[in-house]
């Protein structure tokens, strides 16, 4: 029984390889030249970069204060 299922799955796998179709994983990125897609892209890039910027600024500020305090003491 188990062997039959494995063979069946292999046949389905082989057939699907013979019939390749592109898949749209991201519906908003289908037509990248369209203005709305460019808008989404820039928006996502902007929002993606911001947590790093925020943590960088806070972390950098704390680091700067610690360095300055150590510099004053030594």
């Amino acid at each position: 029984m188990f062997c039959r299922i494995t063979v069946l799955l292999m046949i389905i796998g082989l057939v699907s390889l013979l019939l390749p179709n592109t898949l749209d994983a991201c519906p908003a990125c289908k037509n990248l030249d369209e203005p709305i897609a460019r808008g989404f892209n820039w928006s996502v890039l902007f929002m993606m970069a911001m947590p790093f910027t925020v943590f960088g600024v806070i972390g950098g500020s704390v680091y700067y204060h610690f360095r300055r305090a150590n510099g004053v003491r030594t």
Binding site: I36, G39, F46, M47, M50, F55, V57
Partner: peptide, 20 residues
């Protein structure tokens, strides 16, 4: 930092509408 994230969300929405 929290305020920045609030405005980033709003600006992100603006960019989608503006560029779209």
């Amino acid at each position: 930092g929290a305020e920045t994230m609030l405005f980033v969300g709003l600006i992100g929405a603006f960019l989608v509408f503006r560029m779209g």
